[in-house]
């Protein structure tokens, strides 16, 4: 059996504040295999970016990893000194963020930025690096790449910039790519192009991808497996087909029903009452219990851990044989 590229074990991210310590990521564990896309979904504030930032060692202070471990190809990277981590970022872990302009320097030509990244991470001549830069631009589908390699980022459209960022992320042939909302700012038509591109590159180079987004549609089309986050924890994780088509966790079920669908004539969308709790007011027991239609006594007292279910796992007492109350069997 092959080993996972990324292995996150019991990750905990905390924010010390004046009024106490907030836990933004609480006991999160997952693996990503070579060539696999793990989608991470959940509503705003669920802890998706925090998890991704912890992996790449870019938590904004005072945020810090307070527990657990992160392994890249079996090697721990969560306690490396800044310099060592900086070398891993870019070389072994590529990054793509929502706003391509955060990854691109407006003052430098696209080609220069690519060449610099390539030279930082591999030994080759300037001419070779430039040839490689051109190859990368072609690979991510920049039309007339040869003519545009010397353009500045602002001369590219949003979709083209995101392609350049992908080219940058892939420049050093990383083992892992963390993409945080890479298509959120793009039109659907461009989004489709970028998604097709991520999938192709993933298959071609066996890169492991952690794809963070709140767009279930993007996940459904791109991911192999999905982790659904709620209030800093994984509520459900499993193969994309299972999570999208037959979710176990009441929160995932609500989330899926809330999405308007092109081919549905439904008059009303499924509605989850209320809102996700703030970090300083996470309910006791199951964090979802005040909004859950299936809530029973145990949910208010004890916090459910992920319970394995066929190929998925869900953190919900409904699936604990011991606690199953007769009236909520659904």
């Amino acid at each position: 059996m092959t080993d996972p590229v990324l292995s996150v074990r019991n990750l905990r991210v905390e924010f010390p504040t004046r009024r106490g310590t907030l836990t933004a990521v609480d006991d999160v564990s997952f693996d990503i295999m070579p060539g696999e896309v793990l989608g991470v979904v959940g509503e705003s504030g669920a802890g998706k970016s925090m998890t991704g930032n912890a992996v790449i060692g870019l938590l904004e202070p005072p945020g810090r990893i307070a527990g657990g471990e992160i392994l890249l190809q079996g090697q721990r990277i969560d306690h490396l000194p800044y310099e060592a981590m900086r070398r891993i970022r870019g070389k072994r872990i590529g990054m793509v963020f929502q706003d391509p302009l955060t990854s691109l320097d407006p003052l430098y030509r696209v080609g220069e930025q690519l060449v610099e990244t390539i030279l930082t991470h591999s030994k080759m001549s300037e001419t070779q690096a430039r040839a490689r830069a051109l190859e990368l631009l072609n690979e991510v589908g920049i039309p007339a790449a040869k003519a545009r390699i010397d353009a500045y980022p602002h001369q590219f459209s949003g979709g083209m910039r995101q392609r350049v960022v992908l080219a940058l992320a892939l420049a050093a042939r990383p083992e892992l790519v963390i993409a945080d909302e890479p298509t959120t700012a793009l039109d659907v038509s461009v989004q489709a192009q970028i998604i097709a591109l991520i999938k192709r590159l993933c298959a071609q180079y066996g890169v492991a991808v952690m794809l963070i987004t709140h767009d279930m549609g993007v996940i459904a089309e791109t991911a192999d497996r999905v982790a659904v986050m709620y209030a800093g924890r994984i509520a459900e994780i499993g193969p994309v087909r299972n999570v999208v088509k037959s979710p176990y966790h009441p929160y995932t079920q609500g989330l899926m029903g809330a999405i308007p669908k092109l081919d549905s004539e439904a008059d009303r969308l499924t509605q989850i009452p209320g809102a996700m709790p703030r970090l300083n007011a996470i309910p006791r027991g199951c964090a979802f219990n005040p909004r859950c239609a299936h809530v029973f006594d145990r949910c208010r007292a004890e916090r459910p851990e992920l319970i394995p279910l066929e190929r998925s796992a869900a953190a919900c007492w409904l699936y604990d044989k011991a606690s199953q109350p007769a009236e909520t069997a659904s």
């Binding site: 038509s189 489709a192 192009q193 549609g217 089309e221 994309v240 999208v244 669908k261 081919d263």
Partner: peptide
């Protein structure tokens, strides 16, 4: 319409535009 992500996993096949 072709560019809309397919939630139903019907393999409708999103066409890249």
């Amino acid at each position: 319409l072709d560019a809309v992500p397919d939630l139903d996993l019907t393999e409708r096949g999103r066409k890249a535009v």
